[in-house]
């Protein structure tokens, strides 16, 4: 009886046009992405993908991309964790300027970032770096530098938000209990912001994984030397090897999706605080 009354009441309640409109936008977006992914996958064929996986060029570009992007992410974390913490905690007026400056790689087209890096590591610092044996231009090191440059601002943004979400009074209590600032950071701030930090690093890594423009300008597009997956796709598209390009793109898509799903499952399984 009650359930009947409830269902009648529910029927009487008309959905709000406001929510209908928002749902429409969301569903359209999801459908667009689904069609896009379907199109990409349906264009490739299974045999070609299996052949690509055994291809030495693909093998090189995959391992090279994973290696460089992970090194770039590690250095991005080294830069982003202290920077993000200070940006989150220090509210002095000048911090807005610093925050804006750190956003520049996000708003700058990657090609222009690449040119700027090329000038910095070429004419400006190239001589010193050569003496130190740390050539950046047209070298795998340049790939890491370009990926790091593009990924770091995203890491800073995400990590800053993660630190901002930590109640600073939690840190205060730890200080009064006897912890020095560095210990408070390791024992309280990092555990409390762990999920946000991991999300930030994954975001930076995926950004480094797909980096192309700045990498191409600084490290060049050299087959089997500075050939990341993005570079491999570009190289093969440019010579009409569409099957190689599409198969590589599908593999990249699968890697990205697997990482995102793993991240979401991991964060969902974390102890809710």
């Amino acid at each position: 009886m009650v359930s009947k009354q409830k269902s009648k009441a529910e029927k009487r309640r008309k959905p709000s046009p406001f929510y209908c409109f928002f749902w429409l936008i969301l569903i359209s977006l999801v459908m667009f992405l689904a069609v896009l992914i379907y199109g990409l996958i349906s264009y490739g064929n299974w045999g070609a993908i299996m052949a690509i996986i055994r291809d030495p060029e693909f093998h090189f570009s995959l391992t090279f991309t994973l290696r460089t992007s992970m090194i770039a992410t590690f250095f991005a974390a080294l830069a982003a964790i202290p920077s993000g913490y200070l940006l989150a905690r220090c509210k002095k007026p000048g911090m807005v300027l610093i925050d804006t400056l750190l956003d520049i790689p996000i708003v700058l087209p990657p090609l222009i970032s690449g040119i700027a890096l090329l000038i910095l590591f070429g004419p400006l610092l190239g001589g010193y770096l050569t003496k130190l044996g740390l050539d950046m231009v047209f070298s795998p090191r340049g790939v890491v530098a370009a990926q790091w440059f593009i990924a770091t601002p995203y890491a800073i943004k995400a990590i800053k938000q993660a630190f901002e979400a930590v109640d600073s009074r939690m840190e205060n209590v730890a200080r009064t209990l006897g912890f020095r600032p560095a210990m408070v950071f390791w024992r309280v701030t990092i555990p409390l912001s762990k999920n946000g930090l991991i999300s930030g690093m994954i975001m930076a890594w995926t950004r480094a994984l797909g980096e192309f423009g700045a990498t191409a300008m600084l490290a060049g597009i050299t087959r089997m030397k500075t050939e990341t997956l993005s570079v491999a796709i570009f190289l093969n598209m440019s010579i009409g090897e569409l099957e190689f390009a599409v198969s590589t793109a599908i593999v990249m898509l699968v890697i990205s999706l697997a990482v995102l799903i793993a991240l979401k499952v991991f964060l969902r399984n974390e102890v809710k605080v």
Binding site: R169, V173, T176
Partner: peptide, 11 residues
Amino acid sequence: PPEARQFGFAY
């Protein structure tokens, strides 16, 4: 600093 004072603090 607070860690040297070691007052009990409860928010």
